[in-house]
Deep mutational scan, measured.
Amino acid sequence: ETWTVFRRYSRFREMHKTLKLKYAELAALEFPPKKLFGNKDERVIAERRSHLEKYLRDFFS
């Protein structure tokens, strides 16, 4: 099953920080790092999307 969620990266990062405070075991999940430069580059966006998808798969498993 596939879901499509339209949210900004910052909202996922905020969710991760909030949940990590409540559920300490989530700290073990690696959240994709923020890029200061090149964040509009298609390659960077695709890489971030891939890392975010892995994070979410790990989160829900």
Rank of each mutant, 00 (worst) to 15 (best):
E1Y: 03
E1M: 05
T2P: 11
T2A: 01
T2W: 08
T2E: 07
W3Y: 04
W3P: 00
W3I: 02
W3V: 03
T4M: 09
T4I: 06
T4V: 05
T4P: 08
T4R: 06
T4G: 12
V5I: 09
V5S: 10
V5W: 12
V5P: 04
V5R: 09
F6W: 09
F6L: 06
F6T: 05
R7E: 05
R7F: 12
R7T: 10
R8M: 14
R8G: 12
R8L: 15
R8I: 15
R8D: 06
R8V: 14
R8K: 15
R8F: 02
Y9E: 00
Y9W: 11
Y9N: 12
Y9V: 10
Y9Q: 03
S10C: 14
R11S: 12
R11E: 03
R11G: 10
R11Y: 07
F12A: 06
F12H: 01
F12Q: 01
F12W: 10
F12Y: 03
R13M: 08
R13E: 05
R13C: 05
R13T: 09
E14H: 12
E14C: 05
M15P: 00
M15R: 00
M15G: 01
M15W: 14
M15A: 09
H16F: 09
H16E: 01
H16T: 13
H16C: 10
H16G: 14
K17Y: 02
K17R: 07
K17S: 04
K17T: 03
T18V: 10
T18G: 06
T18H: 03
T18K: 09
T18M: 09
T18I: 15
T18F: 13
T18N: 03
L19E: 00
L19G: 00
L19M: 13
K20R: 07
K20N: 00
K20P: 00
K20V: 00
L21H: 12
L21R: 13
L21N: 05
L21E: 15
K22G: 03
K22Y: 04
K22R: 05
K22N: 01
Y23A: 11
Y23L: 14
Y23S: 03
Y23Q: 04
Y23I: 10
A24G: 03
A24V: 05
A24T: 08
A24S: 06
A24L: 05
A24M: 08
E25H: 01
E25L: 03
E25S: 06
E25N: 10
L26D: 02
L26A: 02
A27K: 14
A27Q: 13
A27P: 05
A28I: 05
A28T: 10
A28Q: 06
A28K: 09
A28H: 02
A28Y: 00
L29T: 08
L29H: 04
L29G: 06
E30V: 15
E30N: 11
E30F: 15
E30H: 07
E30Q: 11
E30R: 10
E30D: 12
F31P: 04
F31I: 02
F31R: 01
F31H: 06
F31G: 00
F31E: 03
P32D: 09
P32V: 14
P32A: 11
P32N: 14
P33T: 10
P33G: 14
P33M: 13
P33L: 15
P33Q: 04
P33S: 11
K34A: 15
K35A: 07
K35V: 05
K35C: 02
L36M: 02
L36D: 02
L36G: 02
L36Q: 00
L36C: 01
F37A: 03
F37S: 03
F37C: 02
F37G: 05
F37E: 04
F37W: 01
G38K: 05
G38H: 08
G38E: 07
G38L: 03
G38P: 05
N39Q: 11
N39C: 07
N39K: 14
N39G: 11
K40G: 06
D41G: 11
D41F: 13
D41T: 08
D41A: 13
E42Y: 06
E42W: 14
E42R: 12
E42P: 05
E42D: 10
R43G: 14
R43E: 06
R43K: 10
V44Y: 07
V44T: 14
V44D: 14
V44W: 12
V44M: 06
I45V: 10
I45Q: 13
I45S: 14
I45Y: 06
I45E: 12
I45T: 13
I45F: 13
I45M: 11
I45N: 11
A46D: 10
A46N: 14
A46W: 07
A46V: 09
A46T: 14
E47V: 07
E47A: 05
E47T: 12
E47Q: 07
R48F: 12
R48T: 04
R48H: 00
R48C: 08
R48S: 10
R48L: 11
R49M: 03
R49D: 13
R49E: 07
R49F: 10
S50L: 09
S50E: 01
S50N: 11
S50V: 04
S50C: 14
S50Q: 03
S50A: 07
S50H: 09
H51L: 09
H51A: 11
L52R: 03
L52Y: 00
L52W: 14
L52I: 09
L52V: 11
L52C: 05
E53A: 13
E53Y: 15
E53L: 15
E53F: 14
E53V: 14
E53M: 15
K54H: 03
K54C: 01
K54P: 00
K54N: 08
Y55M: 13
Y55Q: 08
Y55N: 06
Y55G: 10
L56Y: 06
L56N: 03
L56R: 02
L56P: 05
R57M: 03
R57D: 01
R57L: 04
R57V: 04
D58S: 07
D58F: 11
D58A: 12
D58T: 11
D58R: 13
F59W: 10
F60N: 03
F60G: 02
F60A: 01
F60S: 02
S61E: 01
S61C: 04
S61K: 10
